[in-house]
Simulated assay, not measured.
Amino acid sequence: MDNLFLKYMGAREGKQEKPPKKIGTPGPVITISREYGCHGKRIAEKLSEILTAKSYASGENKEWRWISKEILEQSAKELKLSTTLVKQLSDYKHSSFFKDLALFFSEDFYPGNATIKNTIAKYIYDEAEQGYVIIVGRAGEAITKSIERSFHVKLEAPLSWRAKVVADEEHMSENEAKKECTVQDKRRAQFRDYFEKGRMDVDFFDAKLNCKALSDDEILELLVIIAETRGFV
């Protein structure tokens, strides 16, 4: 098997051309999933800036976007609900209350679980089809896995490390932060499982990166190498 790094270095030295881009195909798209306490949004924002700069430098002039909160905002608009309510429903918050509420209202007023998640999925897939987008969270890896020009990464780290990060940022004790990480990880796993149907991470993610072992700059460098090697920029 060819060594990816050697191929990349060869390309940088002009010894290898970029993979040909297929006309009319969806993408490129990069998805970033993350355990709670790993900064996916921060990575996505910086990565979009780097890839946009490289695209303009090459003459392709494509602007890379990154989306996160827009997923819920646009889905809420489509569902005619508040962004807060859509987030609560998709995160399984107050689930017993909303189940009771559903008994009194038809789906014309209260969209069911499948309707909410499928609306979110449609927005994500439509954005991915347009290409030049980095999608943070919301099971983007499962929803866009069928797109050939895609790359899917998961950011993770030991719970103790993430708890320290969350404790510092949210001004809480490390024990409280540990509990919060566990709760948020569970909610994210529940949302992903709707699309992944209990299948293993290896079926969806192309790479997992340890945020404790790697700095932001190192993670970005690795993602840029992948993007360049795959002909995304």
Rank of each mutant, 00 (worst) to 15 (best):
M1Q: 08
Y8N: 10
M9A: 15
A11L: 14
E13A: 15
P19A: 13
P20G: 10
I23K: 02
P28M: 09
V29K: 02
T31P: 04
R34C: 10
E35V: 09
C38K: 05
H39D: 10
G40D: 03
K41S: 03
L47S: 03
E49W: 03
T52P: 03
A53S: 07
A53I: 03
S55R: 05
S55Y: 04
S55I: 11
Y56N: 08
N61Q: 04
E63H: 06
W66M: 07
S75W: 11
A76P: 10
T83N: 13
V86Q: 07
D91V: 00
Y92T: 03
S95R: 01
S95K: 01
F98N: 01
A102P: 02
F105Q: 11
A114F: 12
K117D: 05
N118T: 14
K122H: 11
Y123M: 15
Y123F: 15
A128N: 07
E129W: 11
G131C: 05
Y132T: 12
V133N: 04
I134Y: 05
V136L: 00
A139P: 04
G140M: 03
E141G: 04
A142M: 02
I143S: 08
I143M: 11
H152C: 07
H152L: 05
V153L: 02
L155C: 04
V165T: 12
E169T: 12
N175F: 12
K178C: 09
V183G: 02
V183E: 07
Q184A: 07
D185F: 07
R192W: 00
E196R: 01
K197T: 05
G198P: 02
D203T: 01
F204D: 00
F205D: 00
D216F: 14
E221H: 14
L222H: 06
L222V: 10
I225N: 09
I226T: 11
A227Y: 05
T229S: 14
V233D: 04
V233Y: 09
V233C: 10
